[in-house]
Nucleic acid binder design. Structure first.
Length: 596
RNA sequence: UGGGGGAUCGUCCAAUGGCAGGACAUGCGGCUCUGGACCGUAGUAUCGGGGUUCGAAUCCCUGUCCCCCAGCCA
């Protein structure tokens, strides 16, 4: 028999595997993927999947949008379909080109490419206007002269039906004429609206003759002054989906109430009818996730902008040092469902660390320097120590780090009177300097006035070069360090949760969510010491500072001669946990003593 | 009797009438030149009540609780 070609071979072996395992477990599927899968199997829309992500260019994208994007785009990708980016730009007073540009940059950064499928609702203004005229022709829309306040009165309440507008029964001719004049700019803002004629008694407020066009004499960032009437979301969105041939239109739960209206417009106009499916938006603990609230933080100068590294915006997370891979993995991990939920930010951090651990080169940096003098080390000697760049990735190789008589170690790595379980440096104790030598603390120097420890005098064991003693002597701790004369000075910014409350929106009466801003969400450290290999570090580059965490060179404020580094996330810190447990125990003891 | 939606470990998501499972978090242990990573291990959940069924998180009845909606915002 002729040998099979490799391709054939592959297929066969796969078949063999499959028959050995006749019922492979189906991949985990959320309820939306199940619906889409069923539609594709049934040949609905010719088996095609076309989705869209429809942001309004009135702010920056946040990680909640990332969830939506991974659903919209991920599902299309999964079925070999296409995905669109469509700006829902129907409100010129709120939208700006700079937001549109930032949104596109963020989506690209996340790793999605919409190709030539970039659209704007404003591309459809002419078509939308024709649709509106058609509704008028069919007696399904009318021009209303009620002002805002009156309209609210006529709308009724949640429990009481509304009343028909006195203008509801205008003739088609009159409506056509009035709408034309609205379009021509004959009326003032707010004086007239075009409304759908549906049902003023509906339990669903959205169906009580919703406005579909309003008059706004405003310059649109794309269409300029061409229009003085602009279509409303409900009218625009479903028809834009329809025009683009969208098959499945995913949105958040807030729009469940709008689905009947989405369907109504499409049914009335007898056009292509995508299916709207709603899912729960992402909430993350210790932060807020709405553009309005994020904008409020910016306007109140509580953060420095949309890209403040404390913000849950994609630009903020990027600046902070998050990777797009981690964000996508996170979105995948949290799943898709319909119940309102708050995801623990610890999960995001875990997934981030997982990615960063694999990919980040290690370096040594001292954040709170404490001078160490190795008394028995030759004055002018400098040795190059070989250090591993990434123990998780052998191909990352090694680098050399200069060692000399005067060093900096972390202030937190020394305790004059060590507490239980602290096994770092203290008087008389020996530890290892990573990749270098064992050193022993012989004496300490204190500031005469404050009593603060300002310098350590140590001796080193020349035989322990590289980090191991030939006599097999063990030390309990390994410390990171930086040679004093070779160190690069840097500013380091430490970030913590933006809010002190798990759900900042769960506010007490008389409180505002901004009252729960974490005063320690940003700590700026200056005079930090970086190892010299960081000399050429570029903005946006990520590193692990050994034993401290993952850091990213700030892309806005960092300069070659004055580096600024952001802490992305700490390493998992067992010692910090022990300390916390100890202080908690002490507190409990104190309380017990007090009550006794 | 406004309308719409939802209740599963502490958290998020599975189980689609057949042993309630995974991840995070937490505890304990191992390993370690990062108190990192890694490995092992433990505990914790079907909103309440009734019913159908050999069998219910899942189906039925009933109650309770939670979320969203009264922009000429999206």
């Amino acid at each position: 028999m002729k040998p099979n070609n490799p391709k054939r071979d592959d297929t066969n072996s796969k078949k063999t595997r499959d028959s050995a395992n006749p019922t492979p477990p189906p991949p985990p599927q959320d309820f939306i993927r199940q619906i889409v899968e069923a539609d594709v199997m049934a040949g609905k829309h010719g088996g095609k999947v076309i989705t869209r992500f429809p942001p309004e260019p009135n702010g920056f994208l946040h990680i909640g949008h990332a969830k939506a994007i991974t659903i919209d785009y991920g599902i299309a990708e999964q079925h070999g379909g296409t995905y669109h980016l469509r700006f829902d730009d129907t409100n010129p007073t709120k939208e700006e080109t700079r937001y549109s540009e930032a949104i596109q940059a963020d989506i690209r950064w996340l790793g999605y490419d919409w190709g030539d499928k970039l659209f704007h609702a404003s591309d459809y203004f002419d078509q939308l206007c024709e649709y509106a005229v058609r509704l008028i022709h069919n007696g399904k829309a009318y021009v209303c002269d009620l002002n805002g306040e009156e309209m609210r009165e006529y709308r009724g309440t949640l429990t009481e039906p509304g009343r028909p507008s006195p203008y509801r029964d205008r003739t088609v001719e009159e409506n056509l004429d009035l709408f034309e004049r609205m379009k021509n700019g004959e009326f003032e803002d707010g004086s007239h609206t075009l409304r759908a004629k549906i049902d003023m008694a509906s339990g669903n407020l959205n169906m009580r003759d919703p406005v579909i066009y309003r008059i706004m004499h405003a310059t649109h960032h794309r269409t300029g002054d061409k229009w003085c009437i602009y279509p409303m979301y409900d009218f625009t969105h479903c028809l834009s989906d329809s025009i683009e041939g969208i098959t499945h239109s995913f949105c958040d739960l807030d729009f469940e109430d709008h689905r009947p209206l989405y369907d109504w417009f499409l049914d009335q106009l007898e056009v292509h009818h995508p299916q709207q499916i709603e899912f729960a938006r992402l909430n993350l603990s210790y932060t807020v996730m709405s553009k309005r609230k994020l904008a409020e933080l910016i306007d109140g100068n509580l953060v420095t902008g949309w890209d403040d590294p404390r913000m849950p915006t994609l630009s903020g997370l990027r600046r902070r040092g998050f990777t797009p891979e981690a964000i996508r993995k996170f979105c995948e991990t949290i799943g898709v469902a319909k119940r309102a939920s708050v995801v623990d930010i610890a999960l995001l951090e875990h997934i981030l660390r997982e990615d960063l651990n694999r990919t980040s080169p290690r370096v040594m940096a001292v954040l709170k320097p404490l001078k160490v003098v190795i008394d028995n080390y030759p004055e002018d000697q400098v040795e190059e120590m070989e250090a591993i760049n990434n123990p998780e990735d052998e191909s990352a190789g090694t680098r050399s780090v200069p060692f000399s008589r005067e060093l900096y170690v972390e202030r937190d790595d020394f305790m004059e009177e060590p507490v239980k379980k602290f096994y770092r440096l203290s008087p008389g104790r020996e530890v290892r300097l990573r990749y270098a030598y064992f050193i022993k603390c012989e004496s300490i120097v204190k500031d005469e006035r404050t009593g603060e420890v300002i310098e350590l005098h140590c001796t080193y064991d020349p035989a322990s070069r590289g980090g191991n003693s030939p006599d097999g002597r063990k030390v309990k701790a390994t410390l990171h360090w930086v040679s004093a004369t070779h160190a690069i000075d840097a500013e380091v910014r430490l970030f913590d949760n933006l809010f002190t409350k798990e759900n900042p929106l769960d506010v007490e009466d008389s409180k505002h969510f901004t009252d729960y801003i974490n005063p320690d969400s940003l700590t700026t450290l200056t005079g930090c010491k970086l190892e010299p290999s960081l000399k050429d570090a570029k903005p946006g580059e990520r590193y692990q500072f050994e034993r401290l965490g993952y850091f990213c060179i700030d892309s806005k404020d960092s300069q070659t001669e004055a580096p600024v580094v952001n802490r992305t996330v700490t390493l998992r810190d067992t010692w910090a946990r022990i300390q916390k447990a100890q202080t908690n125990q002490n507190k409990q003891k104190k309380q017990k003593n007090r009550s006794n």
